[in-house]
Design a protein around this nucleic acid. Sequence first.
DNA 1: CGAAGTTTCTCTGTATACAAAGAGTGCTTG
DNA 2: CAAGCACTCTTTGTATACAGAGAAACTTCG
Lengths: 229, 229
Amino acid sequence: MYTETAMLGLGAPLRASERAYRQLRGEILNGLLAPGAALLEVEQAERIGVSRTPLREAVARLIADGLVVGRRGRGFEVTDISVDSISELYELRQALEVQAVRLAATRREPAPFQELRDAFVTAPELLDQGDIGVHRYYALIDELEDAVDAAVENPFLVGALRAVRTHLARIRRLARSNPRRLRAAATEHLLIIDAIIAGDPSLAAHATHIHLHQSLLSVLAAIEEDSER
Amino acid sequence: MYTETAMLGLGAPLRASERAYRQLRGEILNGLLAPGAALLEVEQAERIGVSRTPLREAVARLIADGLVVGRRGRGFEVTDISVDSISELYELRQALEVQAVRLAATRREPAPFQELRDAFVTAPELLDQGDIGVHRYYALIDELEDAVDAAVENPFLVGALRAVRTHLARIRRLARSNPRRLRAAATEHLLIIDAIIAGDPSLAAHATHIHLHQSLLSVLAAIEEDSER
DNA sequence: CGAAGTTTCTCTGTATACAAAGAGTGCTTG
DNA sequence: CAAGCACTCTTTGTATACAGAGAAACTTCG
């Protein structure tokens, strides 16, 4: 996600508050800081190697992101993810992504999606290549999301989508998709892409609706399964 | 418990950062701090009567809200509102509100909307009573929004809606609606309310779609008019 | 007279010191 | 033995001091 940090490499004079924010955010998304984990200012500041002032700024941003909540007199803690909250997140996600693909299809600039189409056609083969293939498949989905964001050209909508994806990243961690689902998802994505290329907003919208419906079902089933073990 | 929030107004011991945030936010929404206005930390801190630390926290929240942007080395400034950004905001607003009323209609708890219905039936009369009536009409719309929020029962969606409404407040300032538009809007609202009461998600969604379409047209026309003068 | 380099000055970014508020604990008393 | 109260200790909230980066202005050279 934050590969830009790697590409910036050296010489990038990053503010301490930004460093703290990215590190904490990454650790929360990774599950390294589990839901319910307590965050104490001095403790975290020392660990990350910044003073309390930039750390507080970082925590403030995490609170705005909905990743952290302040406890009354006892510091902060990482928000937890209930099954209810997953369904709720998908209600928002559906509204945003349906609108996004609708707009993308309306813009009628199919070029970047043509390329993606070719990649998604061969996606099922990718999924036979084990972990590395799955990883590349996820990268493909990221590219699709980026292409939609670029086509939409709407900072408000894209901003809301980014917020949703932040929470999705945490959910994906605790409910890994199985290969069968991923294969089905590839087909669904292909349909969405074709609809955008064809400039058919309704079709793109409905295809996205169905895709997210299936996605939610799969996530909920995976969690159900995990909790039974 | 947290009753102090309710007692707000009197000697409520509010944190300095919270005071600064509310004051700045209010002034931006009021237009007192116009788009493009520069915010200098020391200057604003002295004016509001807090030190730089809580003021910085307040500004950070305003940046997260999208009301303020950081300039390279020269402080911060209030974001400006372009005509393009209004249309973009409405693209997001439509996605969110359509989803919200759809869910509200699905929940099938018509009680709070029954009361609102009665109020909206008499809304046109309100609009004949001059400024005070118009003010009460806007309060009515707030109540409707609150009722929808409560019915939706989705923190993610409601949170996104709140963000949109923040920006809408600024837009309303620079494009006051005329009485004719308000009267038409009352009718549109009534239709939405009826659809929610009837538990008809599709009708509620389409009615909202149309309402927002008309609302955007009206806003853009009002701005066009203003810029001609 | 103009342009570029340098200097200065302002403003942000960070660290730390201080104050105040809340929670937990232990003592005292009924 | 239990309940209430006070005290202490932890942890946040705020102020301020200091350092570094960037912009504006001035000076100097072509």
